[in-house]
Design a protein around this nucleic acid. Structure first.
Lengths: 225, 225
DNA sequence: AAAAAATAATAGTATTACTATCTTGTTTGC
DNA sequence: GCAAACAAGATAGTAATACTATTATTTTTT
């Protein structure tokens, strides 16, 4: 399974890119190097020019793959949620009890790198870091409406929907299933971010299981009627 | 009290600005007009040039008040949290029971504009909108570390600390007080945002009390031992 | 009323985010 | 096996952005 994870192709909405980066060596290099640079200098300072120089190519070549750097960030986040869904599907396939499934999902989203996973396309560790500190910028734009309509965030929505479904199985009468699901996903990123930069605002520290324990306690107390 | 709220001065860390915008007519116009423009075209498209033209002045004049547009956003968010703390202090001053206080705080943060408040400095409604859709950008920068150290986010941290304190009063043995507090604040913004752009991911819709009901149910179930 | 200080306007520059055009390589049909 | 068609990549721009430096004007202080 480790081997499988290393090379599995994650499906990303093809409207996000101009040309599929996963269809050529240069395209894959663009993704891999983007993750490196964004992780190092942050998304705001990241430019196609810097990326092109790093790759020994030119800006216009990069533009052939992505219309602009915002789309590239959308691609990375979409890829991440696709990868996470894959992890969730694999990790819960042998479970039947919805309560157990939810617990497992919480464990996975809270700590997606627990098993020291790798992938050929890019550094998962650095991608995870980018998701925590940059991915909200993919949503927070005046163009969200259009991008939602174009299905740019389908992978994220699908992970949400899976959690909603499990919550409904545990307690069909719970009236905040959707709110609970999106809160769980948002809280994971937010608490990771706080633990890095505002440690006084969270109890989640170096202890990786603390976050999962917190979220599990909430769902247990709220969903058992 | 309505009158009082209209003109009360909110304290903002003086390192955020180069010159206090609340100390001159032009400065106040800069704030007021910034809120209008950012609300209309979004923070990314907002520039000091557009602002200057709107005000009938020049870029360099704006730069005298704020080093860059990021600082201006930090100012707006800091002002917002200062204002919210003020609302919380006023709204809970007559309460003694910590459970009641927490409920009131949740009601205020979930729906801060409930009483159709106004302020001379800027449109609170538009500021609230900016907080929901742009304020994370104030945090999500490679410079957070420095900015935290300089106390740029002190107003936000203080609101957090107030909630932590109340939670500790309700249940001193609860080990996730900090995580719970920051989750409450983050969830409010996030759910507002989702209700606007990803309505399928939340149960919070046009019904303004639904969010408060959700958060109250969580705290009640988690904090009562 | 003159000197000092604060404020504003003018005119730049380096960088960014693209676009348009030209050149080279690669495939495809015959 | 080779020309035609097409895709990929390089070169050379441009308009806008985010500032900065310098000069001019107003306001305040003595």
């Amino acid at each position: 399974m480790q081997e499988l994870l290393k090379t599995v192709q994650i499906r990303v909405n093809d409207r996000i890119y101009a040309k599929d980066p996963d269809s050529s060596d240069l395209g894959r290099n663009i993704i891999n190097e983007s993750v490196e640079i964004i992780h190092e200098i942050g998304f705001d300072a990241f430019t196609f020019k810097k990326l092109a120089i790093s790759l020994g190519t030119t800006e216009s070549t990069v533009y052939r793959y992505f219309e602009n750097k915002h789309r590239l960030l959308v691609y990375l986040t979409s890829w991440y949620w696709g990868w996470l869904e894959y992890k969730i599907v694999l990790g819960t396939s042998n479970l039947a009890d919805p309560e157990e499934i939810l617990q497992k999902i919480i464990a996975i989203i809270s700590n997606p790198l627990s098993e020291n996973q790798t992938h050929d396309l890019m550094s998962l560790e650095k991608l995870h870091n980018i998701i925590i500190s940059e991915s909200p910028k993919a949503f927070l734009t005046k163009l969200v409406e259009t991008e939602v309509r174009e299905g740019f965030f389908a992978n994220f929505i699908r992970v949400n929907d899976r959690i909603i479904k499990v919550i409904n199985e545990i307690n069909p009468d719970y009236i905040h299933a959707r709110t609970m699901a999106s809160m769980l996903l948002d809280t994971v990123s937010n608490q990771w971010f706080l633990s890095l930069h505002f440690p006084s605002l969270t109890d989640v520290g170096m202890d990786n299981d603390r976050l999962a324990a917190f979220l599990t306690s909430i769902t247990k107390r709220c969903l058992t009627s």
